[in-house]
């Protein structure tokens, strides 16, 4: 049998969080907790560092602002100069509203694309989504901890014992 990982179902967020602390302290690296909503404190319990999405947002915003300023200068002050009311051909003030909107537009795309890239989404297939119990729980009212068989510390018996001692009532192997 080709197994993806060992899945342990927990009934409450506190149980899942305590289990996560133990799995973290046991030194596992390829594991995750699947929850129907973000559980606060779980990031620390899993030892996850701060998300890097902000960098994508920043790069998006900087690109948007620069694009706006350069586009407006190029169109109205370089490629085809139009004199309107004797005003200067280019001024950052009249170019600001559009550049401001483009900053926000590009930064928003940056955030969403950054989130998708960091999460390796979209994906059309995941071994866990073929498991009936997982689908009925992780997006509904259960908290499911999964340790992948690919983890260097994974050992079918030891890992199962660890999850059972953490208080899971249901542990099963998920096929790949």
């Amino acid at each position: 049998m080709n197994a993806y990982g060992l899945m342990a179902v927990f009934e409450t967020p506190a149980d899942a969080m305590h289990a996560a602390e133990r799995v973290r302290d046991a030194g596992y690296s390829k594991w995750d907790v699947h929850t129907p909503f973000p559980v606060h404190g779980l990031d620390a319990a899993m030892g996850i560092s701060n998300s890097k999405v902000g960098w994508f947002t920043f790069i998006g915003g900087a690109t948007g602002y620069t694009t706006g300023m350069i586009m407006i200068w190029w169109m109205n002050a370089f490629d085809y100069k139009i004199v309107i009311g004797g005003k200067p051909m280019f001024s950052p003030f009249y170019a600001f509203p559009v550049s401001y909107e483009l900053t926000i537009l590009f930064a928003s795309f940056g955030s969403l694309i950054g989130m998708a890239l960091l999460n390796r989404l979209p994906r059309l297939h995941h071994p866990l989504l073929r498991n009936r119990r997982f689908c009925q729980g992780a997006s509904h009212d259960k908290f499911i901890l999964v340790i992948e068989t690919a983890d260097p510390k994974f050992n079918a018996d030891e890992t199962r014992k660890l999850l059972a001692s953490a208080g899971s009532k249901h542990i099963e192997m998920v096929e790949d």
Binding site: A20, D32, V33, H34, T35, P36, P38, V39, L42, D43, M46, I48, N50, S51, K52, V53, G54, T57, S111, L112, G114, M115, L118, N119, L121, P122, R123, L124, H125, H126, L128, L129, A138, S139
Partner: peptide
Amino acid sequence: GWTGSNRHWSNYEKA
């Protein structure tokens, strides 16, 4: 392909 993974939630909440 959302699985409710907490590693995903972490980036998701930031976004």
